[in-house]
């Protein structure tokens, strides 16, 4: 087990190097820092001095990957590649365009992101599984058909409309909670209720339909039929056998997103004005703050790889038949 984990962690290293190279290529090779400077300062009226100043402020005035003028080891370290890309492995992201330390910003913004994402994750899982179980209980009736139609209809609505509609109805017509904003401590609850609720509802359609198929696959197995034939009550069958066995693919399927909960949700956070990592990313995209976007790409990849590792481990935890060599 431990040997497996160690090997997987080692396997993550070339992937992270790959991610790093891709982001480096995207941000510095496809467009030179000069292009970026021109873009930021306005394409037409821009002087070479202004570009030089912009590059110097951000440390983009070094050679890309090989500094022929420096001496010794500095030939490699005194370059954009080393300063901007290799340093990320130490989670040193440098400063954003507004001069703030990116790592510190990420640490403080993680909390609001998690405050939305974790309840959405848990509640969403609970509601979707319950709804799917209900449909399976009434399988092959009009209720089941109607439920599936409802799921397909719900997954055909853009998440933007859920948010816009929810904000309009709950905040504007009913005046129940503020439209957007955030506060620390217990005050946060009134700001969080609506985004959590909307995200849970928006997610029901696709996940409940998927879980229903998984449950139905389990219901049609021989052992369930045998149990039913021997007179096991329907509800006992559903909860003791079907739910427990179908939970294996469901749980292992969702484990991969757990680390990514830290990243928050781009759209929810920007619509509701929650100062989390999602809105941080969106602000960076809009302000074309490349340093922040690069940092978020790297963190997101790390978390995804962690998620893959957790998925593999979770197989052994919930399903004793799986052994990792």
């Amino acid at each position: 087990m431990l040997a497996y984990v160690v090997r997987r962690v080692l396997y993550a290293i070339p992937i992270l190097i790959g991610v790093n190279l891709i982001t480096f290529a995207l941000f510095f090779v496809v467009n030179s820092p000069d292009d970026m400077a021109r873009m930021q300062l306005g394409v037409k009226r821009v002087t070479p001095e202004a570009i030089q100043k912009w590059k110097a402020e951000r440390g983009y005035d070094k050679p890309l990957a090989w500094n022929a003028e420096a001496a010794g080891l500095a030939k490699v370290t005194d370059t954009i590649f080393f300063a901007k890309s290799v340093r990320m492995f130490a989670f040193d992201f440098g400063r954003a365009d507004d001069g703030r330390d990116i790592s510190r910003e990420i640490r403080t913004r993680m909390v609001p992101s998690l405050a939305v994402a974790v309840p959405v994750f848990i509640l969403g899982l609970y509601v979707s599984i319950s709804f799917a179980l209900l449909l399976v209980f009434f399988r092959a009736t009009y209720l089941d058909v109607g439920g599936v139609v409802l799921c397909v209809a719900m997954m055909s609505i853009s998440s933007l409309f859920y948010i816009i509609g929810g904000q309009w109805l709950v905040s504007k017509v009913w005046h129940l909670v503020p439209i957007s904003g955030y506060a620390g401590g217990l005050d946060a609850v009134k700001f969080l209720v609506l985004p959590v609720l909307i995200n849970v509802i928006a997610g029901i359609g696709s996940s409940a339909r998927l879980y229903r198929t998984l449950f139905l696959e389990e219901v049609n197995r021989d052992y369930v039929r045998t149990a039913m034939a021997k007179g096991l009550p329907e509800l006992t069958m559903l909860f003791r056998h079907v739910l427990r066995n179908a939970l294996i693919p469901i749980l292992t399927g969702v484990v991969v997103v757990i680390p990514l909960l830290f990243m928050g949700s781009l759209i929810t956070e920007s619509f509701f004005g929650i100062p989390g990592l999602g809105s941080y990313t969106i602000d960076a995209i809009n302000a074309q703050d490349f340093a922040v976007v690069r940092a978020m790409v790297f963190i997101g990849s790390c978390l995804y790889i962690l998620g893959l590792l957790l998925t593999d481990l979770s197989y052994t935890l919930v399903d004793p038949r799986v052994r990792l060599e």
């Binding site: 992937i15 991610v19 891709i22 982001t23 995207l26 941000f27 990514l260 990243m263 781009l266 990313t281 995209i285 976007v293 690069r294 978020m296 790409v297 997101g300 990849s301 995804y304 790889i305 893959l308």
Partner: peptide, 11 residues
């Protein structure tokens, strides 16, 4: 795959 889709698209 390990690069979050939205961010790769954004970049």
């Amino acid at each position: 795959n390990s690069i979050p889709g939205v961010l790769l698209i954004a970049a």
